[in-house]
Amino acid sequence: MIFLDAAATTPVRREVLEAMWPYLSGEFGNPSSHHSLGDAAAAALAGARAATATALGCRPGEIIFTSGGTEADNLAVKGIALARRAADPRLDRVAISAVEHPAVEESARYLERVHGFAVDVIPVDSFGQVTVEALAGVLRPETALVSVMYANNEVGTVQPVARLAALARARGIPFHTDAVQAAGWLPLDTAALGVDALSLSGHKLGAPKGNGALFVRGRTRLEPLVHGGGQERGRRSGTENVAGAVALATALTLARTSRPGAPEDPGSRVAALRDDFIRAVLAGVPGAILTGHPTERLPSVASFCFPGTSGESVLLELERQGVICSSGSACAAGSDAPSSVLLALGIDAEVAQTAVRFSFDPTVTADELRQAAAAVGIAVAGVQSLGPAR
């Protein structure tokens, strides 16, 4: 099997399992308990918080551990917007890009539906990028929050987050970015990015599912969504997942070598393999369309539309040949509607339903991608031979 669906999830790294194992076995204490087992758990949690903060270039107190990226996005969007409106009732708008993950989009729509906020959608260009001019065009004095993802989970386009955040900051508006797909591939220094909140998910970079984190810059107002025992400095109640926090911190620490300029930069190697793969697919499949930005994209994502096919049929053919990939966001599983991301790029709905995404982890090899590119040509030709997609 050639696994090319790393944007959906990644295998758990052995180093991560070894780091978290003690807190799944002997060191099982509750970090809020005042005895030796509890103290050991609290120390592990503090260490994980410090390591996560180091990876993000922030203070440990600015890290909130969550159950994953979806919860982190919900807490950022709802928590910041509601807290700002509570302080100033005039702040009743949120701005999100047209290509956000459902965790951000649905959080904004919840604010609209339940709390009366207005949602301003920032348009993107045909490559899926938000320009500074496009963001400026939707900002209002009433804007409580801007949320633009760092890198898109479907087409891999990377946003100019630092420039967008600078514009929001100049107008006194907090800026959140969903960095779930960027982690391990792009710099995560929150000071350099200029963001006020940043979401992460462990299972995208070698930790198990069910753990994540939200960075919230100090003094940023945040209304908690989960109430109870006052854990995470009152911002996210519930007994902390110590093993999950250790796993996330370990995975982030290991992934720091993937940043551009690091002594060992898997991102540069994978980007070169990605470009070879893109060229091979475009050469081998007449009419194939690369989606997303041609250069400002994650090293790990290559996405295409294959007009005249069904994306799901191509996936099945590829799996028969031992290639595992995706038709888009795993979080939209079960939906047969065309991708809202591709529609936002101006792609016709019928063509959008032919989308296939290939996403790689740092261990992918040139041979695997050569085999996969050949399989794509065979799969698309096989589906096309069956007649028009229905």
Rank of each mutant, 00 (worst) to 15 (best):
I2D: 10
A6P: 00
P11S: 03
V16M: 13
Y23I: 14
E27K: 14
A51M: 06
R59K: 14
G61N: 11
G61I: 06
E71P: 03
A86Q: 14
L91R: 05
V99H: 07
H115K: 12
G116W: 14
A118L: 08
V119P: 01
V121A: 08
V124H: 05
Q129K: 13
V132S: 10
L139D: 05
E142Q: 14
V158W: 00
V161Y: 01
L164K: 02
L164F: 02
A166M: 08
R171E: 14
P174V: 10
P174I: 08
F175H: 01
D178W: 04
Q181C: 09
D189F: 09
T190M: 09
L193H: 01
L200E: 10
S201N: 10
K204R: 15
K204I: 05
K204T: 04
A207M: 09
K209H: 15
F215A: 01
V216T: 12
V216S: 06
T220K: 07
V226Y: 12
V226P: 08
H227P: 07
G228K: 09
E232T: 02
G238D: 10
L248F: 04
A255W: 08
A255C: 11
T257Q: 15
R259M: 13
P260K: 07
G261D: 01
E264I: 10
R269E: 08
A272N: 14
A272I: 14
F277S: 01
F277Y: 04
V281F: 06
P286E: 06
G287F: 11
T295E: 15
L316F: 13
R320P: 08
G322I: 09
I324W: 13
S326W: 01
G328K: 06
A330K: 12
G334E: 05
S335L: 09
D336C: 08
A337S: 13
G346R: 11
R357T: 10
A372E: 06
V376D: 03
L386K: 15
L386V: 11
R390K: 15
